[in-house]
């Protein structure tokens, strides 16, 4: 087997980890609040800027900068819910999509206004590992490992804690949970915070690999929706698996063609699959 192809495949798996983390956050919010945050990737962008400024500009140690970014985005998630999602909770799905779409527009423009369109890098140079003449980025390995840890932690949180159980209950039947003494508004807030924190974690991992600029959300955003829909909106395990399918298509497509072409392959694959299995890959 071609060694470069193998390298592409491994890099694809590593990329899939971060995508899976983002897909988990989006799926969690959708499964519980029933709103798709079109602006999810742009919230990640905010986190990447936070890390850039804290670490590269003000010299805050990286772990602390990451912790601040994660908690900051958790707060931002709550804010987004209270200010934008809560008022449109009873509106048609279209209006909900558009409200978060407007937020996407706002975040991108506001970042442009504040920081300009420069590409900024936090300047952490992690070593590149050479394994059997393949080059693997250490940053990607870390990102992959932490993503998996995050996913597993989320799984246990949802399975083992009271709050997690309440979240799963509301995703199953939002009419009944009120009768069980669960305050759905508090659950929504908690889920928005967790979704924001997951975006923050992804921001830390992405900041190690990519330059920050106001439109970086456009690179990941569409891919994440695609993954969530493929896995079945709200289906977290489906989304997790779909992340790796899509990242493989992107990686292998990039190996045979250009980066853009690899995304064209991925999106086309997505459209075709949606037409074959409209409720997602793993629908019953």
């Amino acid at each position: 087997m071609d060694i470069y192809l193998l390298e592409a495949i491994i890099n694809g798996i590593l990329l899939g980890g971060v995508l899976a983390l983002l897909a988990l956050g989006l799926n969690l919010i959708f499964g519980v609040v029933d709103v798709v945050w079109i602006c999810y990737a742009d919230i990640v962008m905010c986190g990447m800027y936070a890390i850039y400024f804290l670490y590269a500009q003000y010299g805050v140690p990286l772990p602390l900068a990451c912790a601040i970014a994660i908690s900051g985005l958790a707060g931002l998630g709550v804010l987004v819910h209270v200010l934008i999602i809560a008022p449109v909770l009873r509106s048609p799905p279209l209006n909900q999509l558009l409200a978060t779409g407007g937020l996407l527009f706002f975040l991108q423009s506001f970042a442009t206004l504040l920081f300009g369109t420069d590409f900024r890098n936090i300047g952490v140079r992690l070593p590149v590992l050479e394994v059997a003449t393949m080059y693997l980025s250490f940053a990607r390995l870390i990102a992959f490992a932490i993503s998996l840890v995050g996913a597993v932690a989320l799984y246990f949180f949802l399975k083992r804690t009271y709050l997690g159980t309440a979240i799963r209950a509301i995703a199953q039947d939002r009419e009944i949970v009120g009768l069980m003494g669960i305050d759905d508004r508090r659950i929504y807030l908690a889920v928005s915070a967790i979704g924001g924190a997951l975006a923050g974690l992804a921001a830390c991992l992405l900041a190690l690999q990519y330059d920050v600029h106001p439109f970086i959300g456009n690179t990941f955003g569409p891919v994440i929706f695609m993954i969530c829909v493929l896995g079945g909106l709200g289906n977290m395990i489906g989304g997790f698996i779909a992340s790796f399918v899509i990242s493989q298509i992107i990686a292998i497509g990039g190996y045979y063609g250009s980066t853009e072409l690899s995304y064209v392959f991925a999106f086309t694959f997505f459209i075709v699959l949606m037409l074959i299995r409209p409720r997602g890959l793993f629908a019953p």
Partner: peptide, 11 residues
Amino acid sequence: GHYFALVTLAL
């Protein structure tokens, strides 16, 4: 619904 919006978005 959502699915239609996102499929067309991919298009």
